[in-house]
Design a protein around this nucleic acid. Structure first.
Lengths: 177, 177
DNA sequence: TGATAATTGTTATGGACCATATCAAATATC
DNA sequence: GATATTTGATATGGTCCATAACAATTATCA
């Protein structure tokens, strides 16, 4: 990374690297209008997994546009609702978020009055996390949007049974791989 | 993002946000040793998808440690091998990589003599991409590592049939969602 | 033909996300 | 009570992603 800047490469270095590709009928200007062959790429689980994940997140963001919630923010709200009274370290680590990176995320949610940090009386170092009333209301609307527009679209695409099977296999990978 | 710096928040703002969580048997110091409940989070496809993708990439990197190939680099090599003679724009766009970001990636592969940019004679603006002999050899070894250590582990975890079903569903999401 | 538009690779740049070191305040440990 | 640990926070750097802009080259078309 951050390789040298000068672009005076290519030219005729590795002069024999172009051998073995005698064109099969190309001599004029407009060649290669066809799409590239994915080949073995479409069999690589990692590749397909990444593309699918991007699509799902993209659709999630569209569905949540009215509430301005990212997947990460939504997961925090869900987790805090289910586990009120836990501190930042606990919530962050269950989500796989490092504590330093969790600070700005929470700053954002708190500035929008969706959740609150409360100094614990037991351990005055830690901040207890709770959803505000507005946070609960927004989360409820978010859940409906996800169920109605997001997951529904997936069921429509895969079918209920397949969607559940997919979830099971992904969970297995996420937990046991 | 980049929210204000001062950390004088929390305290007793939103004073009633802590209501409604009358502890169920906690009064002393060491409380909450249990793990958090994931709740609906484990049913969110996006969440599980992202975690699975991270695990798969992580394992891929471990399997490829000896060859120092990232998933993105591997995909470029695979695609160029299957489609020799295409230019940077074509290869980058099929991989969903923006042209500016593809430059450094190629700089890296070219500096390691795995692939080469050749100025096209048809269109002297574009750089034709080809694998070098070393690139072909490295890619061959990479494929074996992926099949032996990476995909094999997945088959062992899911079973051949399930793995193929998973791939099919992910492809469907990636292409039709 | 020649002026103008479009394309290709590239650089610069900024944002989002992730990871590490470090700090002060508070607590735990011995 | 001295020392170590934990918690939230800041600073910082790396990687990935996205946009604007540029020179060189080619396409378009009056």
């Amino acid at each position: 990374m951050t390789v040298s800047k000068t672009a005076e490469k290519s030219s005729e270095k590795s002069g024999d690297a172009a051998k073995g590709r005698k064109d099969a009928g190309e001599s004029q200007g407009q060649v290669h209008a066809e799409a590239l062959q994915l080949g073995e790429l479409s069999e690589q689980l990692g590749y397909v997994l990444k593309r699918a994940q991007l699509k799902v997140f993209e659709n999630f963001l569209r569905c949540m546009a009215s509430l301005q919630l990212t997947p990460a923010q939504f997961s925090v709200l869900l987790l805090v609702e289910k586990n009120p009274g836990r501190n930042q370290t606990e919530v962050a680590s269950t989500l796989g978020i490092l504590r330093p990176n969790f600070v700005a995320l929470l700053d954002n949610l708190e500035s929008r009055d969706l959740c609150a940090r409360i100094r614990s009386t037991n351990d005055r170092r830690s901040h207890i996390l709770v959803l505000t009333d507005k946070g609960k209301a927004v989360l409820a609307r978010a859940k409906k949007l996800v169920a109605t527009k997001h997951e529904a679209r997936l069921n429509e695409l895969l079918g209920q049974a397949n969607r559940e099977a997919l979830l099971g296999m992904l969970s297995k990978i996420a937990n046991e791989f």
